[in-house]
Design a protein around this nucleic acid. Sequence first.
DNA 1: TTTCTAACA
DNA 2: TGTTAGGA
Length: 132
Amino acid sequence: MKEKELRRSLSVFPIGTVMKLTDLTARQIRYYEEQDLIHPKRNDGNRRMYSLNDIDVLLEIKDYLAEGINMAGIKHIYDMKEVAKQKKQADLKKPVTDEDVRRIFHDELLQAGRLTNEDQSSTTLFHTHRPL
DNA sequence: TTTCTAACA
DNA sequence: TGTTAGGA
């Protein structure tokens, strides 16, 4: 099932189509790109071209935002997903006991509560969770 | 017409 | 995030 993933990765939609499909503004879509949440390619005219995968991520972001998670939180969720994949590949050769495993679980707990909404000013950073 | 970058009464 | 200017 590799052919399918390959197709989902093809960047073929211009931003206008993505706007209609996600109900996001061009401003938001470009902003999420700045935050490295998506990486649309550019065509010869410097126009952004999005893939089905990019659209899926955009839709996920909408859900997270609706759940009250801020940009910082969403970013963590995605670079956690990366770490999780690195771990998965590493586990194919190495045993399952890495520091990464703990870090992942740790971050997971933090996000469950801490970065839901309010600003990073103070309170919620302390009372929600304790280090693992 | 559509999208791009940069910037802010 | 919205919106707009000025260009491609």
